[in-house]
Design a protein around this nucleic acid. Structure first.
Lengths: 200, 200
DNA sequence: GCGTAACCCTACGCACGAGTAGGTATGCTC
DNA sequence: GAGCATACCTACTCGTGCGTAGGGTTACGC
């Protein structure tokens, strides 16, 4: 039922998808779709929520495990990339469609916010262990960078079906974690200060 | 003229924007829009090309400079984030709208491909200098990760107008470059191999 | 067998917006 | 000043697709 909607939305885009086609794909008629799931907008939101919840679940399952910081990150990346690999349609709906349409951008932002919070939590947890202090904004930017990097690689993965999600996760680690490891160790990169600018 | 189109597209989205509104915003009438810029689709492509070209130019200008690897990356990040900060509408059109719509996804993929190639070039150039060998795929994944991370941070920047693009670029460096620095130095993260999996 | 109710369909109304036809004003040529 | 071209607008046609009204079909009660 929702599956059909997700398929069609992912093929045609939100606007390109007609309720007729969704009904057709689901093997029922249009009024039934309206009876069960309401308007097109409600239907799309329902898809969004289900796919989003599934994704969060896949990640949360891994984060909940009691693992070392690096392995937890690696496993999360695997979970995320694995999920995207296995639910390409859902991913397309979530990230390629929802983002552009104002009515849904908010939903997506909320989802992403939850993911970022998970990542911030992981970073914070590790930092606490190391006894270092970092500002909230700092963490947020880093988390956004990690999440964005992973999303981008997920996109790449969708376009390269021959690639192995697990190996890709490992490659991600080679950028993300090695960078984060430096940060956690307190090594900072500083801009060259040639023109005598006053540091903030 | 195109400016008005970019504004409206960024506010309403591709489908949400009506030619009437674009004409109105531009201070002319609809037939004039058709006379000057053709159909809605052609108009959008024109916006895409202009904004894309501007962005590439902003980056290319910096990449062309003869700089050390880290400073070049940092300056590129600054150029990119600075551009996004200064052209939020254009960015919204490019990345939030074009991505979801099949007719334009190709254009965007091409643009992104060019950016990735620039990044791959930077990485390769540096690696050559270090005398190390890495596979093309490896580089591509890393480049996608960097580009994605930056796009994501750019999005964050759009939603946080109070943030300073330059400082944000520096923060990005703290993830991207410190990670890349490890890679360039040949330090690799390897997955824990608890369950006796055969390494590939 | 007939009423009735649950269920699902075909076929439509209606709004919206892309693209255009035909008219009007302003300036330029002779 | 008549003829003409250029620049622009108002007002329309027409397709498309969301949402629904009203009809057919099956199953059950009496």
């Amino acid at each position: 039922m929702l599956d059909a909607a997700v398929r069609v939305f992912s093929r045609r885009g939100y606007h390109g998808a007609s309720m007729d086609e969704i009904a057709d794909d689901a093997g029922i008629s249009k009024p039934m779709v309206y009876a069960y799931l309401g308007t097109k907008e409600e239907l799309f939101v329902a898809c969004l929520h289900r796919e989003g919840a599934r994704m969060m679940q896949a990640i949360a399952d891994v984060v909940a495990l009691d693992l070392s910081a690096d392995e937890r990150l690696w496993r999360s990346l695997q979970a995320f990339l694995g999920f995207v690999g296995a639910h390409r349609d859902g991913w397309a709906v979530l990230y390629r469609q929802a983002r552009g349409e104002q009515p849904f951008a908010g939903e997506l932002t909320a989802l992403r916010r939850r993911i970022v919070e998970v990542v911030v939590g992981m970073l914070e947890h590790t930092l606490r262990g190391e006894g270092r202090e970092v500002t909230e904004t700092e963490l947020e930017v880093v988390a956004y960078a990690l999440v964005g990097a992973t999303e981008s690689v997920a996109d790449w993965l969708v376009d390269h079906p021959e690639a192995d999600p697990e190996q890709t996760a490992t490659r991600m680690m080679n950028v993300a974690w090695m960078g984060a490891a430096q940060l956690l160790a307190g090594t900072l990169w500083r801009p060259p200060n040639k023109r005598g600018e006053a540091p903030s």
